[in-house]
Design a protein around this nucleic acid. Structure first.
Lengths: 137, 137
DNA sequence: TATTGTTATACTCTATAACTATA
DNA sequence: TATAGTTATAGAGTATAACAATA
């Protein structure tokens, strides 16, 4: 079946890219999850629960992750004045700088992979991945 | 730059597929790493060190992972008679059965993604991913 | 009462350092 | 001496259950 080959290819690419992300993250003492959190916070300002839901983690896990990132000065908690139960999470300038640095390095590390394809094939691959990954499937 | 869009798409697909693998693994009390170990052992019989190197983990981490999998009867340690320092790791029938079951479920879970593409596009995507992921880049 | 988030607890994952057994 | 693997230790990541504060 064709789609089995596709699933296998997707799983292989997942482990390979995750390996790159893990290795680069480790250089900066960032787990895959912390990396993802920083990535998300670059252009969002979610509350704890939203973050946890988006990442598929328990809210208590989220508390620990944000605790550690906050202790390092990468993010901050911002009590929401409208509803004082809510905690909004924001990235700090230091966190933003680190996030950009890490993601730049990820781009450089993955460049050998992406450069195996010509520009046309690159565009094709982006489009196919976007279609496959599009929500509501 | 085209390749940045590609890197972004690869990273997104990585987190998305990893999420599916993590969710399904959790149903069977298998972490992403354990899942990968079982997947590898389906058609290999590596020694501890080979397994650790392949996964990019320390050998002590490997000891713990195999300890827990062995305690559950999913894998077994086989002392190598040629060099008695070496421990070969083998999957048990129960481990193999579980691995097949989990990977079947992964295929079903990813089917919605893969079925968004027609057969031709599926083949294209497999080929592009294989090219991008091919070793020695 | 229901919701948001934290804390206490327990287990897995991970690396480093020190160790044992074998070569 | 060098290599293969384990053990001791410590910290991060994770979920469950119980909790405090707010709505």
């Amino acid at each position: 079946m064709t789609s089995d080959a596709l699933v296998d290819a997707l799983v292989r690419s997942t482990f390979q890219v995750a390996g790159v992300l893990t290795r680069i993250g480790a250089k900066y003492d960032l787990s895959l999850t912390q990396l993802r959190v920083l990535g998300l916070l670059r252009d969002r300002r979610p509350r704890m629960t939203e973050l946890a839901e988006f990442l598929g983690l328990d809210k208590s896990t989220m508390s620990g992750l944000i605790d550690r990132a906050e202790r390092r000065g990468l993010v901050a908690r911002d009590r929401n004045p409208e509803d004082r139960r809510v905690v909004d999470v924001v990235i700090t300038p230091a966190g933003l700088e680190l996030a950009e640095q890490v993601y730049d390095e990820v781009r450089r590390a993955l460049a050998p992979m992406t450069s195996r394809l010509g520009p046309e094939h690159r565009d094709q691959l982006v489009e196919l991945l976007d279609t496959a990954l599009s929500p509501s499937g």
